[in-house]
Structure formats: C-alpha cells, structure tokens
C-alpha cells in the first residue's frame, strides 16, 4: 500500500525495441493468469511500473516504523512493549521482502535506498502524521494496517511472481497488526471516560488520512488502467477505499466511536456506506513534502543511515579479512 500511485518521473530510457508480437504474447500470458517470473521477457514499462510500485511499498514499510517506534519505550506495559516491538520488527521484514522482490527486476537495494535518501523516491503519505499519544498506536494498527490489508490482499494475486509471493508473507503477518491495534482501541473504549476520549481523538485524526492511503480517486489515477490490464492491480483505488469504509464503520460502531464524517450514511439499497469528500489538497500537500512530519521522517532516516555506516563498513572489513584468511 503504500502504493498510492505516487508519481515519479520515469527515468529508464530503454532503447530495446518491443515488437507488437512480443507485447501481444506478453499480454496473452497475463490474460491467461500466468505468473511472470524475474528472468522472463517483459515490456520495459511493466518492469518500470513494478520497480516504482514495489520500491515505494518497501520505503513505506521502512519509514512506517518511525511513528510506532516513537512509542516503543512508552507503551503502557511490558507486554504492550513486546507486542509493539514485534510489530515494528515485522514492518522491517516487510521492507526487506519487498526490496528483495524489486531487486529481481534488476535494480539494487542500494540504488533504491539512495533514491529514498535523496528524496527522489516516495513513500506513503500516511507516515507523515504524528503519533501524539498511545491511542494513536491503536488507531494505526486498526486503520492503517487495516487499509494496508485491503490493498495488499489482491496484490497476492499480482501477475509478477516475486511480488505476489512477498505479499503472501506480508498478509499473513498483517492480520496480527490489525488485531493488536483493534485490541488497544477496545481496551481504551472500555476504560475511563478519558481513555475513551483518547480513542475518539485518535480516530478523528487518523480516519481521513487512512482513506487517503488508497491514493487518488479513479478519475485522477494515472497508472490505474494500465496496471489493471497488466494485473498488477486487481481493484481500483475507489473500489478498495469503499471496501475499507464498509468493513470499518461497523467496527467503529462496535467500539462506540463516532467516525468523523457528517456525510457518512448507509445506503440501504446497495449496502455500501456513502462518505464525505476527501480533502485532496491535504493529500497532495503531504505527498509534496509538506505534511506535519515529512522533514522529521526523512531526517531520521538519513541520520540512521549515516550513523550506522560504520557498522556496514566493519562487517565488510571483517568479511574481507575472513576470506583473505581462507585463501591464505
């Protein structure tokens, strides 16, 4: 998810000639639901689209550790700390699975990481919001991981084999993330009035940014049609957003919380919830780097990279020394 179709200028300038026959044969494989594997022939644009999407997804998992990492030492009990630590560690794992999947397309992890550090690569808008109190950790697990699951389950059937397989691992782990978040919310909602108010406040702040996670509306989504034809995407942004609203509103009702949307109403006929207009200006502002925490997230990521350079160097020096010994 974190696959919002965030755009970046296509840089690959491939001079390879793609014949109409090759393209047709490729599309026929896709239409027959065959999986495309790393070494198979694929159109340059398919490769480029996947590299962009998978690397953005990986960056999002990595940056996504920061808002929750903020609460690792402050979680209210030892058990909550252990759970949150496991969850954050999973997100690191997700980033690694995804970098590996992208690497099969011929881009190195270092290149992708450098793209992030240089500010050229994007990551999901959602991680540029602050986690102000403990209830935010509940809201993130419940809503943000919940939205991620909605987006990621269809990606398990993505036409590109290595991406699909990575998503299967990720999805298995995400449901723990969502449940631990809901559990935090549930406890708060059954606590004191102040605790319940915390939960409501967190929902108020995270609801709309969570809906934005699905990316621009279908009318404004430039990559959607091609990605659907290639079966990288199986559902449009708006379809996924609708599904998310439909499953989440009843959960909020169960918690006794109010979804912060005056326009929200159940359309009895279709069984779908109708919801209010998303503030797309806010979405674009956050993507453009002007969200509440963009600068802080990038600063933290860069300093982690630089501060730990000596560890990478030392490991490399040790490996060199060992292999020199082995040769001698």
């Amino acid at each position: 998810m974190y696959t919002q179709g965030l755009d970046q200028k296509g840089q690959a300038n491939v001079s390879e000639i793609e014949s109409p026959e090759q393209l047709a044969a490729f599309q026929a494989r896709i239409d027959a639901e065959e999986k495309i594997e790393a070494k198979d022939w694929m159109p340059a644009a398919y490769r480029r689209t996947l590299i962009r999407q998978i690397s953005q997804h990986a960056h999002s998992e990595i940056i996504g550790m920061q808002p929750e990492g903020n609460w690792l030492t402050r979680a209210p009990s030892l058990q909550r700390k252990a759970i949150l630590l496991a969850k954050v560690q999973d997100e690191a794992g997700h980033g690694l699975y995804l970098y590996s999947a992208a690497e099969t397309l011929g881009v190195s992890r270092d290149e992708m990481v450098q793209g992030l550090l240089d500010g050229k690569a994007k990551y999901s808008s959602i991680f540029n919001y602050p986690t102000l109190n403990w209830a935010d950790i509940g809201a993130i697990g419940w809503l943000v991981d919940g939205a991620a699951i909605m987006n990621q389950i269809p990606l398990c059937r993505c036409s590109y084999g290595p991406y699909a397989r990575a998503m299967i691992r990720v999805c298995k782990e995400e449901s723990f993330h969502q449940r631990q978040g809901f559990d935090i919310m549930h406890k708060l909602c059954n606590g004191t009035d102040d605790q319940k108010a915390m939960a409501q406040d967190a929902l108020n702040r995270w609801w709309w940014p969570s809906l934005m996670m699905f990316g621009p509306g279908d009318a404004d989504s430039k990559h959607s049609a091609q990605s659907m034809a290639w079966k990288i995407k199986r559902f449009s942004n708006d379809e996924l957003r609708q599904k998310f609203v439909d499953v989440t509103v009843p959960q909020a009702e169960f918690l006794g919380l109010r979804v912060p949307d005056d326009a929200l109403v159940l359309d009895e006929e279709s069984g779908h919830y109708r919801f209010g207009e998303i503030d797309w200006q806010e979405f674009h502002d956050v993507l453009a780097g002007n969200g509440p925490c963009n600068a802080q997230r990038m600063e933290r990521r860069r300093s982690a990279h630089d501060d730990n350079a000596w560890v990478r160097d030392a490991a490399r020096a040790y490996a060199d020394k060992q292999s020199a010994k082995a040769v001698a």
Partner: peptide, 23 residues
Amino acid sequence: AGSVHAADDQMALDNARDTYTRR
C-alpha cells in the same frame, strides 16, 4: 523463501533467520 543481503555467510544465516523465521 526469498533473499537477504549479508557481508558474510554467518551473517546471511542470521539475517535469514530474523527475516524469514520470526514465527
């Protein structure tokens, strides 16, 4: 299961354990 980067063989095993066998 997938792949990992590592400076040497032992680190590859450790990283593989942490990345692919947390459960």
